Simulated scan of single mutants.
Amino acid sequence: MPAAPAFWWREKPSPLARLLAPLGALYGRITLRRMRRQGEDCGVPVICVGNFIAGGAGKTPTAIAIAGRLAQRGEAPFVLMRGYGGRLAGPVEVDPAHHAAADVGDEPLLMARHARTVIARDRKAGAALARQAGASVIVMDDGLQNPALAKTLRLAVVDGGSGIGNGLCLPAGPLRAPLAGQLEQTDALVLIGSGTAGQKVGRQAPGKPLLRARLQPDAAAAERLCGQRVLALSGIGRPEKFRETLDLIGADIVAEQPFGDHHAYTAADVDDVVAQARTLGALVATTEKDMTKLAALWPAQAAAMLVAVPVTLVFEEPAAIEALLDAVSGTARATEPQ
């Protein structure tokens, strides 16, 4: 997937954005009409972890954190994903020992290492498979705009640094539908990181719970990279977020190699990066998502130079998210057969 256009993220719409705005308004109305459709009850509670925009905002780490908290409560959470970038349409449960990123997508492969995960282009079929396999709660990673399933709790993830960009709808800006309409279809916001752009979105949602959170880098990776010369390699929606993570842990970033989101790496890509890193005398730092694809391609003789940097979502006020999950857990127990 190509990188999002730079003009999306300018607070003041550019001339090109204004030119595309009428098309964006039409797209937004169609999407919002679709969002408002009544979803089908799949028999267990559904927690949707989505976002307002196209591109990365931190949905996957948020879904991992939510699934983990549900498991601690004694629930049997399954994560439901579309499987973007994979060849399998599903429904199928992801098995990291059997599937590759080319089969199921990079994010589902990563997710399956943390929670039982089902991919399905047809969300209803995916939910049915998860329930059949024992799910007491479904955590839907993405799908805020998808009306197929009735949602018990709708969380919208917002990146503090980028917010909603220029505030226009695709293709004029990053919004999938007008913000006000999407807020009507949302129960709470998860604001990740600091920044005036994200705070501005929060101020437009009075009365909605605002859950502040941060992405915490893995301690072992941070220790390995602190003070080291690093080439930053990533294929994510917003590569600048990965740079921020590396800056946070004290890495000396001497070069960056960003690819488009969900990039399908080739052996030639890897050879080029290895050669560049050796010339620079640098380690190669990458995201945990990218590592699902790079590991099989990376040459054994260069294994020591590749360092994945996992991140964990940490809620600043855990009681706030637990209060929202209380109602979901109660619903889950009520649906169990007597």
Results as ranks from 00 to 15, higher is better:
I164L: 03
A120L: 07
Q228K: 15
A133P: 00
L246A: 08
N51I: 12
D141P: 03
I249N: 06
P96N: 07
G198T: 08
L153H: 06
L175R: 06
R229E: 10
E256Y: 01
G161T: 12
A67K: 04
A135I: 02
L215E: 00
L297I: 02
A127N: 04
R121C: 08
R278Q: 15
N51G: 09
V284Q: 06
D187S: 08
Q338L: 11
G90L: 09
R131K: 14
H98K: 14
Q301P: 02
K12I: 15
D290S: 15
V158P: 02
A135C: 09
V230I: 07
A327M: 01
A100L: 14
L70H: 06
E256H: 08
P206Y: 08
V137D: 03
A6I: 09
Y265T: 04
D142I: 09
E184L: 13
P147K: 03
G50F: 01
A327K: 07
L210R: 08
A220S: 06
A251L: 06
R176E: 05
L23Y: 01
G181S: 10
G163Q: 15
P13C: 14
A323R: 15
E316S: 08
A135Q: 03
L80G: 10
W9V: 09
Q132L: 13
R333D: 02
T279E: 14
L189D: 10
K200H: 04
L246F: 07
V274A: 13
T245Q: 05
T292R: 13
L294I: 11
N146L: 08
G281V: 07
C42R: 01
K293T: 13
K59T: 08
A133T: 00
R224N: 10
A267D: 08
G74R: 07
A222L: 02
V230Y: 10
H262T: 01
E184P: 01
R36F: 00
I249A: 05
M111Q: 11
A101Y: 14
G198Q: 06
A295D: 13
A304S: 11
T331S: 09
A232D: 11
P217G: 03
L324N: 08
L189T: 13
A180R: 15
I119W: 06
I119Q: 05
G207N: 05
G55T: 05
A21W: 14
Q38I: 07
P2G: 12
D95G: 04
I138V: 11
L233Y: 06
V254D: 03
L168M: 05
A320H: 09
A300Q: 15
V79C: 14
A222W: 02
L80T: 03
L32K: 00
G39T: 00
L110H: 04
T335M: 15
I47P: 03
Q38W: 00
Q216N: 00
Q72F: 00
E336C: 12
A67M: 01
A101N: 11
V309H: 02
T292C: 14
R37H: 05
A54R: 07
V49R: 11
A334Q: 15
R131C: 13
Y265P: 05
D247H: 13
R29F: 03
A295F: 02
A6L: 12
P77C: 12
P174C: 06
I119E: 04
P299Y: 11
A268R: 12
G260S: 05
E317P: 00
G134A: 10
A177I: 02
I253H: 11
L129I: 08
A268F: 01
I249G: 07
F315C: 11
Q257D: 10
G227L: 13
